[in-house]
Structure formats: structure tokens, C-alpha cells
């Protein structure tokens, strides 16, 4: 499963390193994290990590393979 997750605001380099499994790009006031998500458990784990770092998820979608 490949996912794209949009985070409100521009994340610092330091904080993007907290998600080493995902690539990222900053654009128009948002940070887009994208990459392979192993399974549902990983997905929910990512959401918890966003939450615990005080990041706001504005959009999340699965990408076509």
C-alpha cells in the first residue's frame, strides 16, 4: 500500500526525520509525506505518531500502485 499524507504547516528537517520510512515534500503551507505503508497496523501507528508530535493531518489517501 502506498499512501500520501498531508500535514498542516511546514515540518522542519528534524521532525521529518521522525518518519524515516516516508519521503516528504513541502508545498503551499503543507508537508506531504508519502511512501509505502506496510499494513493497517503501520497506518494507525503513523497516525498516533503524528498526533503525539502535535501534527495536524489534513488529508490522507491511498495511492494507486
Amino acid at each position: 500500500m502506498r499512501y500520501e499524507i498531508r500535514i498542516d504547516g511546514l515540518m522542519s528537517e528534524t521532525l521529518t526525520k521522525a518518519f524515516p520510512e516516508l519521503d516528504h515534500v513541502r508545498m503551499s503551507g503543507q508537508t506531504v509525506l508519502f511512501g509505502r505503508v506496510i499494513d493497517e497496523a503501520h497506518l494507525y501507528g503513523l497516525l498516533t505518531r503524528f498526533q503525539s508530535l502535535g501534527l495536524r493531518v489534513v488529508e490522507m489517501r491511498q495511492l494507486p500502485e
Binding site: G9, L10, M11, T14, L53, L55
Partner: peptide
């Protein structure tokens, strides 16, 4: 005016 993620930026 900035667009950075709030906590991330401010904590740094």
C-alpha cells in the same frame, strides 16, 4: 505570517 507546523517550529 509563517506557515510552519506550530509545535515543531516553536519548540525548536
Amino acid at each position: 505570517a509563517g506557515r510552519s507546523a506550530v509545535a515543531d517550529f516553536l519548540l525548536a
